[in-house]
Nucleic acid binder design. Structure first.
Lengths: 246, 246
DNA sequence: AAGTGGTCTAGACCACGAT
DNA sequence: TCGTGGTCTAGACCACTTA
């Protein structure tokens, strides 16, 4: 096994065994180079593995630290239809839903050309105009996720949906009032490493994947009227739900 | 911007724009070093970013290539309760469910001490004996996911569940026949970078995150009797489901 | 001011697979 | 055999934060 992999394996074992607890500082690169009798660059290769795994963060110029597992956010699968909680469900939520947290969000609205992804789901031409309401949600000032809702421009022009402010009744209710009530929603979820833009928008460190949740809303006649793209950082989200066993 | 980041950004732009399509070979490290007038190590730093993002794979000693997006696997959220498919749902599934595929799996069974994660969910002591049925599922010979079901040893000892073979009626049905029918299931889903063991078991390349799906089954009286841990590679899974809009 | 990690160089040798 | 990426060295200078 190459030296840098052995260094990474040694440190990983110390972290998973608890010998190096959450938040603990790792030895400096020079210390590790001396201890293993290798060049500093070789140590850096090893640390790079742990950083890419999300186990370790570099806080320049303080050093490398074991990553603190942040508080996870409870995100019920159906925000619109909370299920009756059983005692077991309560137990799970209790330890996830923590103390007083103050949510906030930023909103901006833009008129853009549809990307292929959006165009396909909204059943419009690539490049056609869509209105996108971009939101970043924060809890205690930390970005938690992004939520970009796309609407065909023809459907929502000159409506409140194009205003970059909170919509009290909710954008979906407003869409219904405009004559486009949703009847069905198809959800797609997949996960990958973030793009640099996503990493910057959500303040993601290396080694943190994101889940992409795309919700497309259809009217009763099958016409898609909304496509929402959520980006959820892996270190801040956990999905929990309950189902009965048939 | 440092040189290696600029190199990564240039190549990333060429990939996302389609100038370098899926499967295309990137210039060699030496070519890039000459083109940008930097040392080869600097080029390697840049390529390392793209590899960590999952955009590029290294096929030694052939070179670096744009990663092929593999066929995604349709994984319905509730395998036990298929929902009636709407025309929109059909459209989504159609492009995901591909041609003839041959599934297979490996099974092994072990008697192990409960880890803290499992012990907590099964409401037993850490270190207590649990039976674990470990499965790796393959499609066309490629590993698709792992599925490790844990049962308290007291509940299943001397039963067919401890045999490392297929259980025709299904392990959950067999568990019910033993007197432990499940009434509710709580699902937890989160995602992170894989451990080296997970990466090896599932043949994961760098830059591929995994989703962890933990399903815990409870009897009517609240006793947990099963805890299944699924590991789903991000490049081989997509979750799709439909819900009606209340 | 000191010490950390971040970036970069100019070499070197090796492992591996295609030809 | 050849060319690729993989690993490693021994330096160097810089940016940044804390003390």
């Amino acid at each position: 096994m190459p030296a840098y992999q052995r260094i990474a394996a040694d440190l990983r074992a110390q972290i998973t065994s608890g010998e190096l607890g959450a938040g603990a500082q790792l030895p400096t690169e020079q210390e590790l180079a001396d201890r293993y009798d290798v060049a500093r660059q070789t140590v850096r290769n090893g640390l790079g593995i742990l950083v890419a795994e999300g186990l370790v963060v570099s806080q320049r110029p303080l050093g490398h630290f074991v990553r603190q597992r942040e508080h996870m956010v409870y995100r019920p699968q159906g925000e619109t239809s909370p299920q009756p909680a059983s005692p077991e469900m309560d137990r799970f939520c209790q330890q996830i839903l923590a103390e007083g947290r103050t949510p906030s969000q930023t909103i901006d609205v833009a008129l853009v050309a549809a990307t292929p992804d959006i165009a396909q789901r909204l059943a419009i031409d690539v490049g056609a105009l869509v209105v996108v309401r971009r939101r970043i949600r924060f809890i205690n000032g930390e970005p938690i996720n992004t939520n970009d809702s796309h609407y065909p421009h023809e459907l929502v022009k000159d409506s409140e949906i194009m205003s970059p402010a909170d919509i009290l009744v909710g954008a979906n209710q407003k869409l219904a009032e405009l004559g486009y009530p949703q009847d069905r929603v198809i959800d797609e979820i997949f996960f990958r490493m973030p793009t640099p833009e996503e990493a910057q928008r959500l303040d993601l460190g290396p080694g943190i994947p994101v889940a992409i949740h795309i919700a497309t809303g259809y009217m009763k006649d099958g016409l898609p009227v909304r496509c929402t793209v959520n980006v959820l950082p892996g270190d801040r989200h956990m999905m929990v739900y309950e189902r009965s066993w048939a």
